[in-house]
Write a protein that binds this DNA or RNA. Structure first.
Lengths: 213, 213
DNA sequence: GGCTGTGAACTTATTCACAGCT
DNA sequence: AGCTGTGAATAAGTTCACAGCC
């Protein structure tokens, strides 16, 4: 399989969301054109993205909504029961914990913090535990991925603890740039980077002109 | 000014963060090498990114931390007092509201929701108002950018209300893909896209092999 | 000598045109 | 005829080598 652009994966998620909605509405057939409109990209892009993984449509006809939905879910690892933990149960961690309630795809196995006020409290479907129990839980519950939502200044240290505990992947929501660890895949989701995107408005030529002449 | 890659802006924010830390530590001089290490990129990349905007260093010497810090802040629009509102005061909205407390760069002007339980409550430094007051506040308080943290299924509708109210930019944290509006710049920060990145683990060749043969 | 700044080479990603099925 | 699937063309972004200045 040739190299797949990161941007393709992100778009796949948008296609999947559109397909889920279509399926809920009982729609059976769709086209690259329609998916493109839903994801705000071109039809070329949709077809190319899908082509990286296989061919799921019928020439001259289009795509069958439930079939393509299932295929995309499969591609995105959703056939598998992902086992996750959240480390850092601040507001972001809590919001994420809620998100996993009722998920068919992701099992939230545990949540961790150090704040005594948070320990023992329920968040989503888990009870907050102390980080000292990290290693034990990762091993016993076969955790795949940790979601990092701790403050940026302790992110590296916690990431190292997770690596030592034998975690396979870290999804980093903190502003910190994590050093690579052998055997651990790190993906940056960096919620604060969203805010950094305010910078884009400044870079935007129209705005720039308006403000700086 | 030639076209600047989106990825450059994101990296600029990382450089800025590193520089702020250096300045706090009293460090005066740095190099592309050092910044590269802090942002987990190459020194070439750092120099190229900076070159899009100008030349801020001294050949044979390096960069002066406070000078480069100030220049980057300027580039990212931080010389200006950005006036923001948050629409949707759920947990994510609240977390963001907190983030703006004490910010030198961004002024959070108001927060909106429709939930009667939230109205009148304090979040960060603002009191939650009903969305029916949106248009009035945007006009009177000269709001630049709205941060959208409403549920995905009402995002488009709220975006249209914002456009009608004369907002100049929308930073979209919802999973919805917003249709373009004339005169309104939309940036996707999509916090749920972070979660979509769980898909990357699946696509990762090492994992894929392990799971699918 | 050392480190920045930048044009040129290369790599990656997107756009396009059209061949291939139905 | 219609819409997908894909190789080829174009565009964008990154890496590199070295010229330029301290």
């Amino acid at each position: 399989m040739s190299k797949i652009p990161d941007a393709t994966i992100t778009r796949l998620v948008h296609y999947l969301r559109a397909l889920e909605q279509m399926e809920a509405e009982g729609k059976v057939r769709t086209s690259s054109e329609e998916l493109a409109a839903a994801a705000a990209v071109t039809a070329f892009q949709v077809r190319k993205d899908l082509a990286y993984f296989g061919s799921y449509g019928t020439r001259g006809v289009g795509y069958t909504v439930p079939v393509l939905r299932r295929e995309l879910a499969q591609i995105l690892g959703m056939g598998r029961d992902w086992r996750l933990i959240i480390v850092g149960m601040g507001r972001l961690g809590q919001a994420l914990a809620d998100y996993f309630v009722g998920s068919q795809i992701y099992s939230l196995v545990a949540g961790f913090d150090v704040d005594p006020d948070k320990l023992g409290k329920k968040a989503g479907q888990v009870t907050v535990q102390h980080v000292s129990e990290l290693a034990k839980v990762v091993a016993e519950k076969h955790v795949d991925v940790a979601i990092l939502t701790v403050p940026g200044d302790v992110a590296q240290e916690v990431a190292e603890a997770l690596a030592a505990a034998g975690i396979k992947g870290i999804l980093n929501f903190t502003p910190a740039v994590l050093k690579k660890h052998h055997g651990v895949t790190v993906e940056n989701a960096d919620f604060m980077a969203g805010l950094s995107r305010l910078g884009f408005f400044m870079i935007n030529p129209r705005w720039r002109e308006e403000m700086m002449g």
